[in-house]
Simulated assay, not measured.
Amino acid sequence: MALKNHSTVTQFIFTGLSDEPHLEALLFVLFLVIYILTLTGNLMMLFVVRTDSRLHTPMYFFLSNLSFLDLCFSSVTVPKLLEDLLSEKKTISVEGCLAQVFFVFITAGTEAFLLSMMAYDRYAAICHPLLYGQMMSNQLCVRLVLTSWGLASINSTVIVLLAVTLDFCEAQTIHHYVCELPSLFPLSCSDVSIHINILICVTVLHGFGTSLPIFISYARIISTILGISSTTGRNKAFNTCSSHLIAVFLFFGSGLVRYLMPTSGSSLDLLASLQYSVITPMLNPLIYSLKNNDVKAAVKRTLGYYL
């Protein structure tokens, strides 16, 4: 690997979430439960959408892709976190660290694009209900998902190339529990100012490109909802959007804080990363199932059929 040609460091050491053995044991149990809930909730969502023909609509097609992404996203970070909570020395190879940087960014980046596509889907359903089938055809939905993966892959490649060109001479300790590019900058013995500027530009472009369609879609959705004379109709329209809005705020808020704020090694960095990479993948299936009568009914039908 090119990185080894100009770096004397072969592995990194995480400080992790704590250095107290008793606290680490409690954290291990906590995050193991979170990971099991994440796997169970998202696998259940995938299974229900797949097996229940009433959920074979664009909205649930995007939701099943979101569940798949959350499975991948949490599996990039949580298993290593669980391993380190049981280990005395929390190490990761340089190659493993770069792989984690890539997969964290591609899964998170794809999820950001997918949330943007889901906002457009809600706009089409509420603002143009009679044309919804034409606006959200199966071919278009597949293309939107593939486009999300493709654009996120390009961004992830840029991020990894930034990491590969860093020099690591002596410092090995990452004040974090996972490899993220902002956490690697303080360890580099080369000038990282250009790298930081490129990362900020990529993050801003990514964030702007995914949040702008969400903002425009919801501006039109709110305008349409306010024009509905029936209180029941307004409530129904709002309920179809509230789950998506909660997921957007949880994900974008913590993700942008992590990548746009200077890395300080403080608890804020840890909390922001935990929020978007560990907590949000667990909460998404709960948010969409608890606030969606169609999903709750489908879960009951599926469990009733198989049990």
Score class of each variant (00 low, 15 high):
P281C: 12
Y259H: 10
T280P: 04
K90G: 03
G16T: 10
Q11H: 15
S190C: 12
L30T: 07
I154E: 06
R220K: 14
L46H: 07
N65D: 10
I159Q: 09
Q100D: 09
Y60V: 07
F105R: 02
S93M: 10
F252L: 05
Y123D: 10
Y120E: 03
L199D: 12
S211Y: 15
H206D: 08
S67L: 10
A171L: 12
S264M: 08
L130C: 08
A124E: 03
D84M: 08
V29E: 11
A297Y: 07
T110P: 07
C201Q: 02
I228D: 04
K236Q: 12
C127Q: 02
L144S: 10
V49K: 05
L256D: 01
W149G: 03
L181G: 10
L245T: 07
R301L: 12
Q134W: 06
F208K: 01
T280Q: 14
Y35S: 11
V29P: 03
S273Y: 06
D167R: 08
G109T: 13
S243W: 06
F103E: 06
S74T: 15
E83Q: 13
I13S: 05
S18C: 08
M118L: 14
E20Q: 14
F102R: 00
V48E: 00
L46M: 06
R54F: 04
S264G: 06
L37K: 11
G207V: 04
I154W: 04
A237S: 14
S74K: 00
K291N: 15
K291Q: 14
T15K: 12
I225T: 03
L250K: 07
S18A: 09
L303N: 03
L114W: 02
T57P: 11
G265I: 05
G150N: 01
V78M: 09
V248H: 08
T38N: 05
R50Y: 11
T232M: 08
F252N: 04
T224F: 04
G41R: 09
N235H: 04
L151G: 01
R301D: 09
L43N: 08
K296F: 08
G150W: 01
V48T: 12
L212M: 15
L55I: 03
L17E: 14
F185G: 01
L17M: 15
R258Q: 15
S266Q: 12
E20K: 15
Q11Y: 13
L131A: 06
C97V: 01
A247T: 08
S18Q: 04
F12Q: 03
I13D: 04
E111M: 11
L144C: 11
Y218P: 01
L245Y: 02
S267Q: 04
Y218G: 00
T110A: 14
F208M: 06
R220D: 12
L81F: 15
V204W: 14
Y177R: 02
A99G: 02
L39M: 10
I34D: 07
N197R: 10
P213R: 02
F62P: 04
F61R: 00
L283A: 13
G233W: 06
L55Q: 01
